[in-house]
Design a protein around this nucleic acid. Sequence first.
DNA 1: CAGCATATCTACCCCTGCGTAAGGTTACTC
DNA 2: GAGTAACCTTACGCAGGGGTAGATATGCTG
Lengths: 214, 214
Amino acid sequence: MLASVPGGPTFKRLPRAVREQQMLDAAVRVFSRRGFHDASMDEIAEEAGISKPMVYAYLGSKDDLFRACVHREGTRLLESIVAVVADDLPADEQLWRGLRGFFGFVGAHRDGWAVLYRQARSGPSYDLAALRTRIVEVVAGMLKRAVESQGRTARDEDLTASAYALVGAAESIADWLADHPEADPDHSAARLMNFSWLGARQLLRGELWQPSSA
Amino acid sequence: MLASVPGGPTFKRLPRAVREQQMLDAAVRVFSRRGFHDASMDEIAEEAGISKPMVYAYLGSKDDLFRACVHREGTRLLESIVAVVADDLPADEQLWRGLRGFFGFVGAHRDGWAVLYRQARSGPSYDLAALRTRIVEVVAGMLKRAVESQGRTARDEDLTASAYALVGAAESIADWLADHPEADPDHSAARLMNFSWLGARQLLRGELWQPSSA
DNA sequence: CAGCATATCTACCCCTGCGTAAGGTTACTC
DNA sequence: GAGTAACCTTACGCAGGGGTAGATATGCTG
């Protein structure tokens, strides 16, 4: 019908895999700007240039769709980080590469980042916490090797806490970056590197801050 | 009617101000565990031990109610920080007190924190970003005075970026704290103090990290 | 070209949950 | 103790949007 409207766009039949990616792209954009709650399946379908039942046929319910978005973007994010971090590099180089990978992803997939960071906490995505935990573990492992390479030791809780701090700091800067298209991701990475690594290095040396009034 | 059921609980009439606080308390709890979307006004009313039209009469629509929650908890959070930060203290002592105030709030109002951090990004609360910006500004101002007290200068963007990093790190640790009731808020504050202040102090001295492979 | 699987649409159902109308009850005031 | 204002409830209207049924078009395969 629509395909035969004179002058109208000809809707070509596309294989499932292609349509699914289009739908996910559209869903990420819509979820990103509306949030899970205010995004409607109709709008997502329209954004994808397809009708609503197709979305249900291919990707299931709204919750399923959202989870699929989070899963795809989360996997991409994790890949961006671990792909560039080689185990045999010195700790500061690992951190530097990891941060560049991370901020690079955010700069290149701002919508995806917005879904992961701003929406996924409240939406029906219970495995996002798992992804975040994995990233924290990666960072904690990095810190642990750094400590051991100095011939020192640290309690796991302290390493984990530092990793949480570092990840949180990165997320915060990333969120600022997502709202400033003109900013350079590498510049953000360098800023955070300066802020965090110098502190971590001091910790590696065993230095501690002490409250002056106990 | 209900008040006269034999053996049933006697529902006492209470002044508006009291009921409003009860409703806000209940709403914060429900929003905290369900999220904005999945929280229903019926459940909030039930949690408050009151019927639904009372909520509408006193606090307006669901959006209004949520905003009221965010506003109350956000104000409490800000108060917890600024109340203990005196301008004439040295920078590290200001930061230490601010962090203690912050983590103290989170430890004492975990539900409120969950609403602010996990729900408010997606819910209809457009002034939460403003609150966060104010906190970032407070921290940035703190850093600026610290730099100047060293007879040095720094660009505003770098100070702001460091403030974002610090605030993000604090949020991340706080979120961990919210899920670990046994943890001591002051301990978290000390951990973050060690991680961040040592780095900031290095920055104050003009030290910078440099990538080994430019 | 007949048959079939896949892709796609229009039109609809219906439930959830927001928000409200109308009326009953309690406590304060004169 | 009558009047009144504030408190509080039950019961319902109603829209938005998630999800589906059934029909239709398209292109591949023998």
